[in-house]
Design a binder for these strands. Structure first.
Length: 204
DNA sequence: TAGGCCATCTGGTCCT
DNA sequence: AGGACCAGATGGCCTA
């Protein structure tokens, strides 16, 4: 156990040295982070977005040493070492983890993290766009992602029914309001909820 | 305070 | 080989 901790310490010090020497990599990292910050600030986030209250880019405030902070998984690994290191498979995994903490891997991992954040940002912007296209009440709080998807499904189903019926959309919705909308789908958003939302829509 | 929601990190897998 | 995609783990924030 002691030598494991020692090794982790060693990795840490070598990493400090590594990052200190690799100005080009740091510049690359900074450029990517800067790009993502620009990407974020240029994005059309809704007023519901909580990005302002919670930093989307903790890395932007990171020092070089922050890159060496152990991940949750590594923590779990360290905690489980005493009980599981007798298992050869665990020993192999542990070696792999130690290997994965070496500098070249960290550079790739950091770049992958940035790409992943960028990818999630694009997904979130798509959700924001979708939220703008589903019927919501003016006073309603921001829809969660799952609710946005479910409401969109129900909304599309209802629009299809309106199309098939050939009726005037507004009168169709009014009829639904009066008779109680029977949604044929399994959607969570059904009956009065969806039609009540649609009653807010200006059909003209 | 528990539960919901979310962002982030991470390793694995698939694709180009 | 490198990037995209995915799911699991984790921790923070918010609300009932």
């Amino acid at each position: 156990m002691e030598d494991v901790l020692f090794d982790l310490d060693q990795d840490g010090t070598t990493d400090y040295a590594f990052w200190g020497q690799m100005d080009q990599n740091f510049q690359f990292q900074s450029q990517l982070d800067t790009f993502l910050l620009d990407y974020n600030s240029a994005g059309q986030l809704s007023p519901w977005s909580n990005f302002g209250s919670q930093s989307m880019f903790p890395d932007a405030q990171l020092t070089l040493t922050d890159l060496d902070v152990q991940s949750p998984g590594e923590d779990a690994c360290a905690e489980g070492e005493t009980s599981s290191m007798d298992d050869p498979l665990e020993v192999t995994k542990h070696r792999a983890r130690r290997l994965s903490s070496h500098p070249p891997y960290k550079v790739q991992r950091h770049a992958a993290n940035i790409r992943e954040r960028k990818r999630m940002l694009s997904i979130n912007s798509a959700f924001e766009e979708l939220r703008c296209h589903v019927p919501t009440f003016p006073y309603e709080k921001r829809l969660s992602k799952i609710d946005t998807l479910r409401l969109a499904i129900a909304y599309i189903a209802l629009l299809r029914e309106i199309l098939v019926s050939g009726c005037d959309p507004k009168s169709y919705v009014d009829d639904c309001m009066k008779s109680g909308y029977k949604n044929h789908t399994n959607a969570i958003w059904n009956t009065s909820d969806l039609t009540a939302r649609l009653s807010w829509i200006k059909w003209d």
